[in-house]
């Protein structure tokens, strides 16, 4: 177990270092930041002066060094566009994205797993066929359409829910469902097939031969074995939730980081882009580490290997 944790920790650290390199150079590949910050008629001297003031005249390795030092001290530099510390600009929005991500993850996981298990234990029956069709639709219908339909039905027609904005628990319902929709469908299909595989095994048969009640056969014996592939898929789906969806934010006027990211990239706001990508990626890497540790808890073969 200790060996497993140590190796995962080292991998995580290496990944974070890798992210810092990629983030730094990708931002600089997007073009010259000063071109957008200065009027076209500005002189060459003005340009140089601006570059110097932003620290962009230093050689790249030096700039990278400053960036890494900033990561450690929590100083990501000031946003070119907003003139405030980039981290503050980012942290102003990130919690909103995280809250929606958590709500979406819960909807996707609970919905996907329960419908998937139901489909698997009633395999071939009416419920199973119905859920398979719904899951297929879930993966085929784009989330913006779902979002608009939800607004039309629950906000405009029934007037049960507010159309948009972030204020109170009610406002989470529609954006969470719309952004969880695709993941829920994928998780439903994964849960169903993973459970069906497990239900065919000899140990499920032996559990039944021992007289274990069917509910315990499903939830104790089968589900825990089916869980590892479900979690793998889920940890991939979380990426979409945490990095924020521009489409969902646009439809529901959600003050998340999706919009901010696009704006930062278009205005070549290096410090802000670096902050957003680096912090979000690191957060996801740590989340993945958590999932890896969860595998070890679920499956003793991983824990004791």
């Amino acid at each position: 177990m200790t060996g497993y944790i140590v190796s995962r920790l080292i991998q995580t650290l290496v990944t974070i270092v890798g992210i810092s390199v990629v983030v730094f150079f990708l931002a600089r590949l997007s073009g010259d930041a000063t071109a957008l910050l200065i009027p076209p008629e500005a002189t060459a001297e003005d340009r140089e002066a601006l570059k110097e003031s932003l620290g962009l005249d230093d050689p790249l390795p030096v700039q990278y060094g400053i960036f890494v030092k900033g990561i450690i001290t929590g100083d990501f530099g000031d946003s070119f566009r907003f003139g405030e510390p980039a981290l503050d600009v980012f942290l102003d929005r990130f919690p909103n994205t995280l809250k929606l991500a958590a709500a979406s993850a819960v909807v996707a996981l609970l919905g996907g797993v329960s419908v998937g298990v139901l489909g698997a234990i009633r395999a071939g029956g009416f419920v199973d066929r119905l859920t398979t069709v719904i899951a297929l639709l879930g993966q085929a219908i784009p989330s913006f359409l779902i979002g608009i339909m939800l607004i039309l039905f629950f906000a405009v027609e029934l007037r049960w829910l507010p159309t948009s904005g972030m204020a109170g628990p009610k406002t989470f319902i529609m954006p969470a469902i719309a952004s969880a929709w695709y993941s829920m469908a994928a998780l439903t299909r994964m849960t169903r097939s993973s459970m069906l595989d497990v239900m065919e095994t000899d140990y499920i048969r032996l559990a039944r031969l021992k007289g274990v009640p069917e509910r315990a056969v499903i939830w104790k014996h089968a589900f825990r074995n089916a869980l590892v592939p479900i979690l793998s898929l889920f940890s991939l789906q979380i990426i979409f939730f945490v990095s924020g969806s521009v489409v969902i934010e646009q439809i529901f006027a959600w003050p998340g980081i999706g919009q901010l990211t696009i704006q930062a990239i278009f205005s070549r706001d290096y410090p802000l882009v670096q902050t957003i990508v680096f912090v979000t990626s690191t957060f996801l890497v740590l989340l993945n580490l958590g999932v890896d540790l969860l595998y070890a808890v679920i499956d003793p073969r991983i824990r004791l290997a």
């Binding site: 095994t201 140990y203 048969r205 014996h221 499956d299």
Partner: peptide, 24 residues
């Protein structure tokens, strides 16, 4: 179900796959 495993018990064919891998 109450008879299975109490009054009528089974020894199955393949011991490699008959025990649940995730429980002691």
């Amino acid at each position: 179900r109450r008879i299975r495993g109490s009054q009528i018990s089974f020894v199955t064919q393949d011991p490699m796959t008959s025990l649940n891998p995730v429980y002691s």
